[in-house]
């Protein structure tokens, strides 16, 4: 196991930020940490980086206890929301900053050689003598990534590194980062509140709320089989019916007389239609529960149409009892 959390807890004065977190990340894999703001995910990342201390529990990296090791001594690099490139240094000097002043100093020739290598990897080799203010937001984040990876960290921590970019750039850079991390076999812990981003980057996903992990698993697993209604709310698309999660893909829109006998049918109203990925989707409000869900249908429906939402119950997606009481 490359990185491991054991009963990690953090309180600030009387407020508990997170408690008893256990997590394992294997080498070369990316773990996405998803949750609403204030769920403690950023604090957890800072604790792994060594910028804030755990109240109790342990952080192990490559089987070594890092819990009380200072930030500058941990084999971990964190990337923040902003690229934070040092404005008084050129791009090459920024990338080699850690090799120059950090733990494992490297001589100048070697430093420049490795700096250029990294700049080439992030496709910015022609920018080495520019200053940060001459680069675009996406380029800056790539420099920041190069500056982190030049140190060969055991784990790289990403704290919503795309959130300061505009949507279009965000789209292209996250795909780029994903393939980059995979190509370089980097182990990463990636914090985001964006479900799609979490799925794009993460091999595994941990859903966090109110300072605990609600569910940890593969994107497919969490998407199709959320364990609690909170996870379903945050990460999946579908409805909750009698304590069971029914994925949107299993729901069909039908007229009142259509449903077969073995199907469950719920009264619903069509709100609007959108097109996505080449298919029409209808936003539907279930009458009994008021839940809104997007369902694909090849039939044409109009706004305000009263329809039935039909599905075959399978009872494979039962949510844990306590949390589904809502």
């Amino acid at each position: 196991m490359l990185m491991e959390l054991k009963n990690a807890s953090k309180s600030f004065r009387d407020t508990e930020i997170f408690h008893d977190l256990n997590l394992q990340i294997t080498e070369g894999s990316v773990m996405s940490l998803v949750g609403p703001s204030g769920c403690g995910k950023s604090t957890l990342l800072r604790a792994v980086a060594g910028l804030t201390a755990l109240s109790s529990g342990q952080i192990l990296i490559e089987n070594e206890d890092m819990t009380t090791v200072k930030a500058e001594k941990r084999p971990v690099v964190m990337m923040f929301q902003d690229p934070l490139l040092f404005p008084h240094l050129t791009i090459l000097e920024n990338v080699t900053y850690g090799l120059k002043y950090g733990r494992n100093k490297v001589n100048k020739t070697e430093r420049i050689k490795r700096g250029r290598e990294l700049l080439e990897k992030v496709e910015l080799e022609s920018y080495e003598n520019r200053y940060p203010n001459q680069l675009s937001g996406g380029q800056k984040q790539r420099v920041s990534l190069a500056r982190a990876l030049i140190l060969n960290p055991s784990v790289i921590l990403l704290d919503e590194p795309f959130s300061s970019l505009d949507p279009e750039l965000r789209h292209s850079i996250r795909t780029w980062v994903r393939s980059f991390l995979k190509r370089e076999n980097v182990t990463a812990l990636f914090v985001t509140h964006d479900r799609e981003e979490a799925m794009i980057l993460g091999d595994r996903i941990a859903i966090m709320k109110n300072g605990t992990f609600c569910q940890v698993g593969s994107p497919e697993d969490i998407y199709h089989h959320p364990k609690t209604d909170e996870v379903a709310d945050m990460f999946s698309e579908g409805i909750i019916y009698k304590g069971e999660f029914i994925s949107s893909g299993r729901l069909k829109i039908k007229t009142a007389d259509e449903p077969a006998a073995e199907e469950t049918a719920l009264g619903a109203v069509i709100n609007y239609r959108i097109y996505k990925y080449g298919l029409p989707f209808y936003a539907v409000t279930i009458e009994v529960s008021g839940q809104e869900v997007m369902i694909h249908s090849d039939q044409a429906w109009k706004r305000e149409d009263e329809v039935m939402i039909a599905f075959r119950p399978e009872a494979t997606n039962e949510l844990t009892a306590v949390e589904s009481e809502k």
Binding site: G50, L51, E72, M78, Y101
Partner: peptide, 16 residues
Amino acid sequence: TWEEQSAVLGVGRFRT
């Protein structure tokens, strides 16, 4: 965060 950025890059407080 400037100081924190420098710290996670392995640079001690004094040098930072």
